[in-house]
Design a protein around this nucleic acid. Structure first.
Lengths: 238, 238
DNA sequence: CTAGTATTCTTGATAATTATAGAATATACT
DNA sequence: AGTATATTCTATAATTATCAAGAATACTAG
């Protein structure tokens, strides 16, 4: 009891879990998995490593217990062991962001620095109830289907350029909570589009922002994303 | 914006913070630092690595921003950048413990498995107000001085064998909240001793438990320790 | 300025990690 | 059973981490 060998084992066990967070590709994989289960092949494609390398990373992650697997026929689907892992990742990144000075600049280079043009979750809900906004989910469609912010419509980023007009169709189809007299008079410039993606560290929303603003649309991004929305315990629509 | 190079930088930056948690010795160092600032020499001694190796670990930790330094004359004192790091460590370990099956057995081998003989923070406060217990802090004396659970007395583990009788002196000196009539009649067997140390993963309390129980004293450990006490936001006495 | 002490930097040996290609395995389907 | 497909295992090379001894640096005190 309490001797050096056992101490090493214990701390070694913790370190093995920490190892999951010590490689960028693995953190990227965690990010994708926080949106739902995925196969090795899909993960490899999303993360940009070979299938073998991705598999090796996944073995490390599975051994740590943070990731679990489910076999369905010839496919093996990887998923996060529990929602606690999403929360841990969120805590981890917020601490990293606060303390490691290299994070913020890297984030600005990756997302572009339009911090001014974002609103938080509470603002979004308030504005949504007042009407005249469209909530736009630019994640891949299957992630939208797995759950999204109530009222949001789905236009995946890669289809956004071709399908912008869908935004106005939706506004016409589902009247807001405003009195009748004020409806129907909304011009594209009046309508505010709130864009969101997976989370605060996902570039989809900012890429979408660039596209929409180049078309002179009144667009803003949610300051974080769907992951943080779930962590906050807010309502999710499926 | 949003390209592969920047993405790599961002996730790489996160990974560099994760690296701190990917080595057992570094986690051990974080544990010691969560009790207060320490010099390289002291840390090396506590953790059981050479000063040079310890210094190298500390450089990694400092670069990540989780650990900061303060120079006082010839000494450099290392400390955690903020209390958030303690909370992160706590979250991290609780997730690791839940999901990685190797943690629990390692913990039992290190601490000994007397799970039955522990009480939680709420129980401790309730029993303390009812009297007839002594709260015993077995951490090194300087950690006790930096802050401890209200009412606790300090007997560092390495002095415990020689100074057990101090426990009874204290009970005599500071009468509990019981009515006068019931005081003075406490025998060593009646008196319950609640032991605590740094945290749930610290072996001091269990080592102390073994010593006290071998003397047939009525002893129990706090299920976690001082770190968790602080995280819970409970009152601290200095 | 100099001696003394604490800490970090250099160096080098060893071990671990990352990544990939190609072989092997496991399952589904016909 | 045999083929197709998804995934893991094996082997290999390049990179990076770990650790410790000794040199170099930074600061204090006389």
């Amino acid at each position: 009891m309490g001797d050096a060998r056992n101490k090493e084992d214990l701390y070694g066990a913790f370190a093995e879990v920490g190892k999951v967070l010590s490689n960028g590709k693995r953190i990227e994989i965690l990010d994708v998995l926080s949106q739902g289960e995925r196969s090795v092949e899909v993960l490899a494609e999303r993360v940009g490593t070979s299938v073998t390398t991705t598999s090796a990373h996944l073995q490390i992650m599975r051994r740590s217990g943070l990731v679990s697997t489910r076999r369905e026929g010839t496919h093996i689907y990887y998923s996060l062991a529990s929602f606690d892992v999403v929360k841990l990742l969120e805590t981890f990144r917020s601490v990293a962001r606060m303390h490691y000075e290299r994070v913020e600049p890297a984030l600005e280079r990756y997302l572009g620095s339009n911090e001014a043009e974002s609103i938080d979750q509470g603002d979004l809900q308030r504005r949504w109830s007042r009407g005249h906004i469209v909530i736009l989910d630019v994640r891949p469609h299957e992630e939208y289907l797995a759950g999204h912010i109530p009222g949001a419509i789905s236009i995946p980023l890669e289809r956004l350029s071709d399908e912008v007009e869908k935004v106005f169709e939706v506004e016409a189809a589902s009247p807001s909570s405003l009195p009748e007299s004020e409806q129907g008079s909304v011009t594209p410039a009046d309508l505010e589009i709130v864009v969101y993606c997976r989370g605060a560290y996902c570039s989809f929303a900012n890429d979408a922002l660039a596209i929409l603003q180049s078309r002179k649309l009144n667009t803003i991004r949610l300051s974080d994303g769907f992951t943080e929305w779930r962590i906050a315990g807010r309502e999710v629509e499926v």
